[in-house]
Simulated assay, not measured.
Amino acid sequence: MHDYQRLLALNLLAYGAQKNLSVEHLCQRSDIDLVALKADGPLTTRQLDDLWINATDLSGDALFGLHFGESLQIAALGVVGQLIRNSRTIGEALTHAASFTHLLTDALTMDVERTRSGFSVQFIPDKVRQRTAPAMFRQLVDFMMAFLIHEVDGLVLARIQPDQITFPAPIADGPEYERVLRCSTIRAGDSYELTFAGEYWSEPVLLANYDLQATLLQNVNAMTRSYESGQRMSDRVRSYLLANANLGLPSLDAIAGNFNLSPRSVQRKLQGEGLTYQQVADSVRKTLAIHFLESGRHPTKEVSYILGYNELSAFSRAFKRWTGTTPGGYQKNQQS
Rank of each mutant, 00 (worst) to 15 (best):
Cys183Ala: 08
Pro250Ile: 12
Ala222Gly: 04
Gly189Thr: 10
Thr224Ser: 11
Ile255Leu: 11
Gln213Phe: 05
Ala245Thr: 06
Asn246Ser: 15
Asn221Met: 10
Met233Ala: 07
Ala222Ser: 12
Leu207Pro: 00
Tyr192Asn: 06
Leu207Cys: 06
Met233Tyr: 04
Val237Ser: 06
Asn209Lys: 02
Glu199Ser: 10
Glu193Leu: 14
Leu212Val: 03
Met223Thr: 04
Tyr210Ala: 15
Gln231Ile: 01
Tyr210Val: 10
Asn219Met: 14
Leu217Gly: 03
Ala243Tyr: 03
Ser251Met: 05
Leu212Trp: 01
Phe196Pro: 02
Asp253Gln: 14
Tyr210Asp: 15
Ala208Phe: 00
Leu241Gln: 03
Val220Glu: 01
Ala222Asn: 11
Val180Trp: 03
Leu241Lys: 00
Arg225Gln: 14
Ala197Lys: 01
Gln213Tyr: 02
Ala254Ser: 14
Leu212Ser: 10
Val205Ser: 06
Leu252Val: 06
Arg187Ser: 10
Leu207His: 09
Ser226Asp: 13
Thr195His: 06
Ala197Glu: 11
Ser234Cys: 09
Leu242Val: 02
Arg238Val: 08
Gly198Thr: 07
Glu193Cys: 13
Ser202Leu: 12
Leu217Trp: 05
Tyr227Glu: 12
Ile255Ser: 04
Arg225Lys: 10
Asn221Gly: 11
Leu181Trp: 03
Ser191Tyr: 10
Arg225Glu: 14
Thr224Asn: 08
Ala214Trp: 08
Asp235Ala: 15
Val205Arg: 04
Asp235Ile: 04
Tyr240Lys: 09
Asn246Tyr: 13
Leu247Gly: 06
Arg225Asp: 13
Gln213Ser: 11
Leu216Asp: 03
Leu249Tyr: 02
Ser184Met: 05
Arg236Asn: 11
Ala222Arg: 09
Cys183Ile: 02
Gly248Arg: 07
Tyr210Gln: 14
Leu217Lys: 10
Val237Ala: 05
Ala208His: 03
Gln218Glu: 15
Leu212Asn: 13
Asn246Ala: 15
Val205Gln: 05
Arg236Cys: 09
Ser229Gly: 01
Ala254Trp: 07
Ser202Cys: 08
Ser191Phe: 09
Leu249Met: 15
Trp201Ile: 14
Asn244Lys: 07
Met223Phe: 07
Ala243Leu: 10
Ser226Lys: 08
Leu194His: 00
Pro250Phe: 12
Leu242Gly: 08
Ser191Asn: 11
Glu199Gln: 12
Glu203Ile: 02
Leu241Asn: 01
Glu199Pro: 01
Ala254Tyr: 08
Ser184Phe: 04
Ser202Glu: 15
Thr195Ile: 13
Arg236Thr: 09
Tyr210Gly: 09
Ala245Ile: 14
Ser234Glu: 09
Leu241Thr: 01
Gln218Phe: 12
Gln218Trp: 13
Ala188Asn: 13
Ser202Asp: 15
Ser191Asp: 13
Ala222Val: 03
Ala197Phe: 01
Leu212Glu: 13
Leu252Phe: 04
Asn246Arg: 15
Phe196Asp: 07
Cys183Ser: 10
Ala214Thr: 08
Ser226Gln: 13
Met233Leu: 08
Asp190Val: 04
Ser234Gly: 02
Tyr192Leu: 04
Leu252Glu: 06
Leu194Phe: 02
